[in-house]
């Protein structure tokens, strides 16, 4: 479904990604973890072309992200993305946030879009918050709206960039539960996260990154039981110790 081949990316003289190769199969949930600054977020933003790459190739469902002739907006419409800081549109209600791209990208009528948005907001447990503005919602609620917004495009795959990192601890689970339900429904997911519990419950495979490289790409059981690199072992000791 998602194929990354030898991705290189530099910001000025800082090399952020050094030859990353990975793939996510249809229906698979892959967790990307690693210390801060290891390039995880940059990698996931390359998948839908939000970050242009210097070298390598990326395809999503057979369509090249890096090809100049690819209609990037059309491709992005098929890939949902959820951000660390939610990035809901502050000047719109929850319902409008979810309906906007359906109306302007998928060209659904407002009534059609709103009906779909109501369904999705119900699915993430927010039926009572349709007309709330983002600043009236808790962080966990905002992130669930933003998941609904991504789902509103009926995406083929979902990208999550540290979806729980900006949340208060007591709100982390409500978001993880929504994500877990999505995974059970068979959604293809690539998730950058420090939530190792989520990885253990939901992921099929774990990618471990450090210094712009993918050091491990293993099935979850193998990654947690017996990581093959020393750095992954150290990382696991630190994040699992509490």
């Amino acid at each position: 479904m998602i194929v990354l081949n030898d991705i290189h990316k530099s910001y000025g003289r800082t090399q952020v990604l050094r030859g990353c190769t990975a793939a996510v199969k249809l229906g698979e949930v892959v967790v990307v973890c690693g210390p801060s600054g290891s390039g995880k977020s940059t990698l996931i933003k390359c998948v839908n072309g939000l970050v242009p790459i210097d070298r390598g190739s990326i395809t999503v469902d057979g369509v090249s992200v890096t090809d100049k002739h690819t209609d990037l907006p059309a491709l992005r419409a098929q890939i949902g993305m959820v951000f660390q800081n939610f990035e809901l549109y502050p000047h719109m209600t929850a319902l409008q946030n979810v309906s906007l791209a359906q109306i302007h990208v998928l060209k659904r009528s407002r009534a059609e879009a709103d009906a779909r948005s109501e369904q999705l907001l119900a699915r993430v447990g927010l039926s009572s918050k349709l007309s709330s503005r983002p600043d009236q919602l808790s962080g966990g609620q905002q992130q669930r709206v933003s998941i609904a917004r991504a789902l509103s495009m009926d995406p083929k795959a979902m990208l999550f960039d540290e979806p729980t990192s900006a949340l208060d601890p007591e709100m982390v689970n409500e978001v993880l539960e929504v994500m877990q339900a999505l995974a059970l429904d068979g959604m293809t997911m690539m998730v950058v996260t420090h939530e190792m519990g989520f990885a253990q419950r939901v992921a099929e495979r774990v990618l471990f990154m450090d210094g712009g490289e993918i050091l491990e790409d293993s099935p979850k059981s193998q990654f947690f039981a017996n990581p093959s690199t020393e750095r992954a072992r150290q990382f696991l000791t630190k994040v699992l110790s509490h």
């Binding site: 939000l50 907006p73 419409a77 098929q78 951000f83 800081n85 990035e87 549109y89 791209a101 302007h104």
Partner: peptide, 18 residues
């Protein structure tokens, strides 16, 4: 306006003008 707003909107498939 935060850059993340642009990223989020682009990620839903909107064009730059939108």
């Amino acid at each position: 306006v935060r850059a993340g707003q642009t990223e989020a909107a682009l990620a839903t498939g909107m064009r730059r003008s939108q």
